[in-house]
Write a protein that binds this DNA or RNA. Structure first.
Lengths: 234, 234
DNA sequence: AAGTGGTCTAGACCACGAC
DNA sequence: TCGTGGTCTAGACCACTTC
């Protein structure tokens, strides 16, 4: 049994090697598709399949009528997998629902959710525990819509995107994270049993519908000694 | 002048709509390529181009011999653009090189860099300023290699990946971020002119060569009131 | 006019899965 | 055996860039 890797993949690897070794530098033109066909002895569609992969992986870009060119590498792009219940050093194994309420938003919240101050907003406040220790204080604000689940069972253990599951297709959901660090205020110190100096990692989540209308705002305050977020390139 | 969008894109949009509207649910089989050819009246390569795009965007996956299936949506994936000199609320406009030195690693550092404790490591310590205010304290550890730039000019204003520019192709560089929050120690308080309680956002960067050997470790301590990291879905 | 990439066709053969 | 997706070919026409 011989595993033969498809031709287009070996062409991809070959061109990657030319780029990584410096033979092809950012801005340089890749040989034309016709030239690559002759060089590798394959049809144009095969060469184009290879070039499509290289473009998808960020190695090259194409300008119609001109050619394919080596892309300047992106050095600052990372992928992070975030879920308020799970992170790289710790998982939430218990939650406590502090409050579910319908409120009227204040100035800032109305602005964040792009609504007027007389609209109803669902506020959910929870505590997250690991091994019996309170590790995070969590607040969510959701635009109130008919048919929304305000059943405590459905809310207590749900992550933010899950709370919108009945209203929105998850494929269409756009999300945004804002990460920063603060000193806890008295209320949070009380909830998280903090008696000495400790920093909080704060993660704000904003959910948008496919037409970029805000659907909700979530803020999770993690004890700094109980969370690390991890990002990876590619 | 009429802009005609290519057929394969309209097929992509049509299938996306079927998925977003719930007509096709996660786990469901997408109609076979042959069926799609007949439905849209196009050749198989055109249908396959559409399916490739849907697969690349995470909507579907394929099992050879069985068919194409709707993917379970990933709800926790975000992209973050991080660069120690720039973030969404603030940019570093001035740097101060505190120290460049060759050191022997301690236990933890040797472990992080996967080297023995008798190997040489370059340590670089810097301060970052915005409008004359020190906003971050930055430490880098780089494996010493012949030909490495220890010229202060090349180091002072460089981001971490840039420091390796002479040694590694940036395309091949793998990177990792660890984000957490701490209270500053006395040394950092002194460097950042912190007199009251303030949290630090700490970003650790690890750089790896293409064969997953660690190349360097960087730790940047940002004043919590001067940095916010932003992540977006898709 | 010549060269480039973008789109699309109508086939072909293969490996794999289900029956 | 038949249907499925995976690979590959040898063309074609188009829009665009360059000269």
């Amino acid at each position: 049994m011989i595993m033969v890797s498809p031709v287009y993949l070996s062409i991809v690897e070959d061109i990657k090697t030319r780029i990584n070794s410096g033979g092809l530098k950012p801005g340089d033109a890749v040989p034309s598709e016709k030239a690559l066909c002759e060089e590798y002895g394959v049809s144009r569609m095969t060469v184009r399949k290879s070039l499509t992969i290289l473009a998808n992986e960020g190695y090259i870009y194409s300008i119609p009528g001109k050619g394919n060119f080596v892309q300047e590498p992106v050095l600052n792009k990372y992928t992070i997998f975030y879920d308020e219940m799970n992170n790289s050093i710790n998982s939430v194994d218990q939650t406590k629902l502090l409050e579910v309420n319908i409120i009227m938003p204040d100035e800032k919240l109305a602005n964040d959710l792009q609504i007027t101050k007389n609209k109803n907003v669902i506020m959910i406040r929870r505590l997250f525990y690991t091994d019996g220790v309170p590790v995070a204080y969590d607040v969510k604000y959701l635009l109130y819509q008919k048919g929304m689940p305000i059943v405590e069972k459905e809310i207590e253990h749900a992550t933010f995107p899950e709370m919108l599951s009945t209203k929105v297709s998850h494929f269409a959901l756009k999300k945004e994270l804002i990460i920063h660090a603060v000193i806890p205020d008295e209320q949070i110190k009380r909830h998280l049993n903090i008696y000495n100096e400790l920093a909080l990692l704060v993660v704000e989540q904003k959910l948008y519908s496919s037409d970029n209308k805000p659907m909700g705002l979530g803020i999770t305050y993690f004890r700094g000694d109980y969370i690390k977020l991890q990002g990876i390139s590619q």
